[in-house]
Design a protein around this nucleic acid. Structure first.
Length: 366
RNA sequence: AGGAGUGUAGCAUAGCUGGUUUAAUGCGUCCGCCUCCAAAGUGGAAGAUCGCGGGUUCGAAUCCUGCCACUCCUG
């Protein structure tokens, strides 16, 4: 089906040259743009503002996504080598320096093979947000394109991927710690539903979409309204109309559930063997409180609990495994909702074979 | 062999002085949501013919009884 669509589109594109299409046209159907051996699938109903023939080549982003423990990094490296690319990591925790083992960061050998971006760009106690990710990633993207290299986006943080590729307009109202703290403590005292009621009065549309128990989002919506006087739902609607989505081709790696869960177990065991406990102990001894967001994340919060003496190590480890399975499920849900993604089963395939499948898909689009 | 006790969803339990649910709760499992903390936050669903059979009763997870399984004690 997908391939048939591609064939038809390719024919059309051959007959009607691209420069006949008006710039900023809104595409009615999923389209494939070809230019000097590059191609991009563009989404229906969205404006395209870059990469027409005669201007800069498209050089679309090749995204390798999917749940944790499917081997995205290895495949990404392999592809970057084959295509002359550089990797932008889309991983909300690999951005922090000092969190290496628990985030399964690429090691120094791997990073010597291929340039990685968005890894080790923040201290653990510095606030890091989607907006910052997007800004840094766009900067890295410009650099990669300027060098004439192929950009790869590799990672499993769905929101970061989406914010970058869909061009969320994020910087209008940054978070304000003081307001948040106040609203958070209010939520703790009177309960999230009370705040939700207040939100309903100023932004009924946002309130309708946010569950009364979803404190994080209620606080954010109230914060935006307090600071700007404009409801967050209005800002988001405005944002949605002013985007320039990236040209990209998206792949996601996956495996049968039992296989993935077994991989997760093995990976967690490996993290412990590589010294995860020492890594966490080192961070805590370095003066970072265990209340920091990166230390409240998967793998770190459980080890912190162990080091505090709240649980024994075996319990902590099985908690990590369990929570990682849940996390993988959430990633799955997130990426499954994106129908542009081409899924590749990594079961019974080596890294090289998976990379080859990606390349052959790309060949087929040509 | 005798005595005591326990059998309720995948697991752990509540209900057990008969009739308020349609057998409840936690964990797990499954599905979803997500626009500046996202490896965070959050919503929902499915799953049990209450060990098996018989009896008492208008009515049994609940009372009686036989069998089976497991646990403990005595020998």
């Amino acid at each position: 089906m997908f391939r048939n669509l591609c064939t038809i589109l390719k024919d059309l594109l051959t007959r009607f040259p691209l420069h006949a299409a008006p710039r900023n046209a809104t595409l009615r159907d999923a389209s494939i743009l070809c230019w000097r051996g590059d191609y991009a699938i563009l989404r229906p109903g969205k404006r395209v503002t870059c990469g027409w023939p005669g201007e800069a080549p498209i050089n679309p982003i090749l995204a390798i996504l999917g749940p944790t423990a499917t081997g995205k990094t290895e495949v990404g490296i392999r592809l970057a080598e084959a295509l002359g690319g550089e990797i932008i990591s889309a991983d909300s925790l690999a951005v922090y320096r000092g969190l290496d083992i628990g985030t399964a960061k690429p090691d120094s050998i791997e990073r010597a093979r291929i340039p990685f971006h968005l890894i080790d760009v923040s201290d653990p106690d510095a606030p890091f947000t989607v907006a910052r990710f997007k800004a840094l990633a766009e900067e890295a993207l410009r650099g990669i394109r300027a060098r004439g290299r192929r950009p790869l986006l590799v990672g499993g943080t769905g929101l970061y991927v989406k914010a970058l590729l869909e061009d969320y307009g994020l910087t209008s109202t940054p978070g304000n710690p003081a307001i948040r703290e106040r609203l958070d403590s209010e939520a703790a005292e009177r309960g999230s539903p009370a705040l939700h009621e207040r939100l309903a009065k100023v932004d009924s549309s946002a309130a309708a979409k946010i569950h009364p128990n979803d404190r994080v989002r209620i606080v954010r919506a109230l914060e935006v309204y307090e600071r700007t006087g404009v409801p967050i739902s209005v800002q988001q609607a405005r944002d949605a109309e002013n985007r320039s989505p990236c040209a990209c081709i998206k792949f996601a790696l996956s495996a049968a559930r039992e296989t993935l869960y077994a991989r997760i177990d093995r990976r967690v065991d490996a993290m412990l063997a590589h010294g995860l406990v020492d890594e966490v102990r080192g961070l805590l001894e370095g003066g970072y409180p265990d209340s920091l967001p990166p230390l409240r994340s998967l793998g770190y919060k459980e080890i912190c609990a162990y080091l505090r003496g709240d649980t024994d190590l075996d319990t902590a480890v099985s908690e990590i495994k369990l929570n990682t399975r849940r996390f993988a499920k959430r990633q799955w849900t997130w990426f499954r909702a994106d129908h542009e993604i081409i899924w590749i089963d990594v079961e019974h395939r080596s890294t090289e074979q998976v990379a080859a499948v990606v390349l052959s898909h790309m060949e087929a689009l040509r």
